[in-house]
Amino acid sequence: MNKVPRIVVALLATLFVTTTFAQPDEPAVDPATMAALEKMGGYLRSLKAFRVKVVTTNDTVLEDGQKIQYEGNIDLLAKPPNGLRIHTNNDRHERLFLFDGKTFTLWGQRMDYYATVDAPDTIGKLADMLEEKHGIDLPGVDLFRWGTPEADTTGMISAMDVGSAVIQGTTCQHYVFRQEDIDWQIWIQKGDYPLPRKVVITTRTDDALPQHTAEYQWDLAPSFNDAAFTFNLPKGVLRVVLEDNLSSDDASE
């Protein structure tokens, strides 16, 4: 057996030590930022009932790469785990989403159509069902996924705290994140109510980098009763079906 020259051993050892124990100045995914996100999620999950009004903008990208921005409004009332009432109003449509733990109803208010389907017993499961079975994104769905295993932080490329900022007159801490398909930013209210006050999501899967923005106004003591989550069929509104992803045949239910 050849005797390995000592100098080679020494060099290898040095390499091993420097690579194993090398400390980068800052980790790409800042633990304090991830902790702040988890704290916000935990707080959201602790709320017994809330009403949040959201002003959104959303970019559509044309074939030639131009972006067109649309504004929208969401008025969301939630009594987790099984009460949800969401009114959305934007250039494309005006809709009411109702869920009471048993049934989900979607009323297209400019068309006077509604659809109603059996629903699972929690908001989280409803959101999954709507996404998977009907291709419908529940407005504000992130508010129900943060603080649960459904909040996907695997594949986080970077996360950092970029400092304080004032949103709608309230001091927030501003964090930015990079994931594979999106960059996103969140402004979390400082103090006893770590709520999201603003979110910006940049979609990286299109070169035009379209954005979605949302600013939130919170009411943590909304007044309502359970009738808020039930659909009272208005006169002249007709029943139709929801688009069905899973069936290959004409969906008749």
Binding site: E63, E132, R145, W146, T202, T203, D206
Partner: peptide
């Protein structure tokens, strides 16, 4: 339209 901005951070399980 060739695409729209994604409006959710969390896409579910």
């Amino acid at each position: 339209a060739r695409s729209h901005a994604r409006s959710n951070v969390n896409s579910g399980h």
